Amino acid sequence: MTSIKPVLPSGYSAVPPGHVATVVTSLEMSARPPERPAQPFPAGVALEPLERTVAAYRALYRAVGTDWLWFSRLVMADAKLQAILDNPQVEFFALRKDGRDAGILELDFSQAGECELAFFGVTPDMVGTGVGRSLMNEAIARAWSRPISRFWVHTCTLDHPAALDFYRRSGFVPYAFQVEVFPDPRLRGVLPRDCSRHVPLLG
């Protein structure tokens, strides 16, 4: 468990113009949770290894994350992202429905003895279909198939409102809060200006 020292004062803190603020919750599990009843992917849906190229990765990343202001891997230098994609300790999977992108699963085993659920999610049309639960069951099984003692993830208040509860029901336990402030990627042209309507655009 990582100790994070508080640095923000109590009360309101101003966010710079053109920036977005979000509360990040870090969660972890220290043992594999009890197995859930099998919930296979529906017909036409399959989990496949993702082609390890910047173009393929970013296309899937955008498909899943645009509505939730995912931008970090879009502004990352191509060479740096390719180095992550080339890392044999990181597993990349695309959930595909009838041949098109429907979800992402990225498991990072780079830190000895643990696994980070680096990116996880489904495309907007798949939210609420139950596919996310099947994908999480697959993530948990793959993570704990290796000799780890910790599986962790973080989510934030920009994500789907059910995300935090979903992770908790999956067996993750919150252990830290942080506030992240960053330039709004919609104002920088990284993401469409009309995406993420749940986050006010203050330019």
Rank of each mutant, 00 (worst) to 15 (best):
G113L: 02
F41A: 00
K80P: 03
T22P: 00
R32E: 09
A43H: 15
G113K: 05
P183N: 05
A31E: 13
D194R: 04
A112F: 03
R146Y: 01
Y12R: 11
S13L: 08
H160N: 04
P185K: 00
W70C: 08
L27S: 15
F93R: 09
L107F: 03
T25I: 10
P42C: 00
E48K: 07
A55H: 03
L107Y: 05
A43W: 10
V90F: 05
A38G: 11
A46Y: 04
T2G: 12
L50F: 08
G65I: 08
V179R: 08
K97G: 13
S149M: 13
R36P: 06
F172Y: 06
A176G: 03
K80Q: 14
D86V: 11
F120G: 05
S72Y: 00
F166K: 12
T129H: 04
V153N: 04
G189Y: 12
L60M: 08
C156K: 01
D165G: 02
A162D: 15
A79P: 00
S10P: 08
E180V: 12
R52E: 10
S170R: 02
A118S: 07
C115I: 04
L69S: 06
F92G: 14
I148W: 06
D194V: 12
P49M: 07
I84K: 14
M76E: 03
P49F: 09
A162N: 09
G189W: 11
R150Y: 06
P124N: 08
Y57P: 10
A162Y: 06
S145T: 12
R32Y: 00
I140F: 11
F120T: 05
E35I: 03
L187N: 11
R73P: 07
M76F: 00
V24C: 15
A77N: 14
A94Y: 04
D194A: 13
M136D: 09
F151M: 09
V15I: 14
H160K: 01
V54K: 02
A31P: 04
V199Q: 14
E114P: 01
A112L: 04
C156S: 10
S145C: 12
R52C: 08
N137R: 14
T2Y: 07
S30L: 11
L187M: 12
R36G: 14
R100L: 10
L117F: 02
F166C: 13
D165H: 02
G18L: 08
W68I: 02
V131K: 04
H154K: 07
H19I: 15
E116N: 12
S13T: 15
E51A: 15
R73H: 08
E51S: 15
V64E: 03
A176Y: 01
R186A: 03
